[in-house]
């Protein structure tokens, strides 16, 4: 086996991982973000990922909408037609969730 850049995921967690102890040393109120997928116990501990500072689930939800918007625009979609493309609110009321909807 050839050498990786880091000896082990255990050491990565101990040296670089975001743990509750490290969080408690943070100087002020902070937000914890992570784009996912998370490696719990490696770069982030579960009690941080699921803790009060975490906005990770919101970030992931918003991320879906942002990606959809980017894909819509890249595919030649026009912002002013975006509302109409939702189907004029006739078929659905929530945000679009399939490519056809755009």
């Amino acid at each position: 086996m050839t050498a990786g850049y880091i000896p082990s995921s255990r050491e990565y967690n101990r040296v670089f991982g975001v743990s509750r102890e490290r969080l408690e040393r943070a100087p002020r109120d902070i937000l914890i973000m992570h784009p996912g997928p998370m490696n719990r116990g490696v770069e982030i501990d579960s009690d941080v990922a699921d803790g009060p500072h975490s906005v990770i689930l919101d970030q992931v939800t918003n991320g879906v909408a942002v990606r959809m918007a980017v894909l819509y625009l890249l595919a030649g979609g026009k912002p002013e037609l975006a509302e109409a493309a939702k189907g004029g609110g006739q078929r659905r009321s929530g945000p679009p969730d399939t490519p056809e909807a755009a």
């Binding site: 086996m1 050498a3 990786g4 850049y5 880091i6 000896p7 255990r10 050491e11 101990r14 040296v15």
Partner: peptide, 14 residues
């Protein structure tokens, strides 16, 4: 390296 075998990096941080 682990075991001084010259293959995998040992845990420097620990």
């Amino acid at each position: 390296s682990v075991g001084q075998r010259g293959e995998m990096l040992a845990e420097f941080g620990e």
